[in-house]
Amino acid sequence: MAGSGAAHLRGDEALLSVEDLVVEYRTSAGVVQAVSKVSFDVLPGETLGIVGESGCGKSTTGRAVLRLDTVTSGSIRFRGRAIEGLDEREMRALRREMQMIFQDPVGSLNPRRPVRELVVEGLDIAGASRKDQEAAAGRVLEAVGLADDRFRDLLPRRLSGGQAQRVAIARALAVEPQLLICDEPVSALDVSVQAQILNLVEDLKRDLGLTVVFIAHDLSVVRTVSDRVLVMYLGKLCEFGEPEAVYASPAHPYTRALLDSVPQPDAVDGFTGPALEGDLPSPLSPPTGCRFRTRCPRADEQCAAEEPQVAEIRPGQFAACHHPLPVPEVLAAAGGAAVPVPARSSA
């Protein structure tokens, strides 16, 4: 990935627009470069999927948008308004428009409060009347499929993982946000429950006109929900584009490697391409130039010397790579990248 640049931004109509976001943490071992000059935007009503392995900065990016982590530098615009300089009081008001749900649904809920109080916590803080709170609780619990009265008085520990995640979603919806940031919302859940939550997010998005940032490590999950996909590696952007194009003909070698690492029941040895060598480098001292070059099969001297900038490789598909991958031959013959079949490696 490696790279920086804002060629893929789509301008003023974006609901959320992030430019050159940098998040660094000081530790006793040095400065962790969690997110380094990442740019992206989300149009109203769109779902942006952010995908990558641990340490790629995808969760930090989500948290930085809500300013849950300190932003080192960069600009974040929400509805055209710069929010990186807002004070804590203004930010608190703004967070009603941007809500977040997390991976561990039970852990993100106060263990001592019943469901009916949990879901309207935000309204309570905003000073809504008792009556309004009660109406809102009924409304959001119904929206997430927990209309049954027996849920209202339960404590979080009595809920299953799927139910707890529904409560977390209901709580986010109670303040009627425009943007919902989901950080690995289904990775702690079983497949059958995961399907329920993914369908729910889709329904809510359609019915309430929500804009969603969906952060996950699971490529299949991201493909299902996303209108645009952002692939990250070690704090940098690798690739951005529509999921059909990115998955069928990835331009960045890291995207290709990620896709090839997903176990496939129908492939001969279970995988469609070669494995990626090596381990993730330390974010304390990331490689120079392209941060992916130490594991990249296409890396050369240029990759070490010069950081690649985000560029439009194919219409609507952007990557930060000095040596982007071509469209696989089978797809090129079939007339483009939008064919929804997996490509065998062309690298």
Binding site: S192, A195, S220, T224, S226, P243, Q264
Partner: peptide, 21 residues
């Protein structure tokens, strides 16, 4: 059968509903 149907794949259509159990 239901479990395989509930599992999203890399070739999933955008916004396609998943089968739930």
């Amino acid at each position: 059968h239901a479990l395989l149907d509930a599992t999203p794949t890399l070739h999933q259509e955008r916004h396609a509903r998943l089968r739930v159990i």
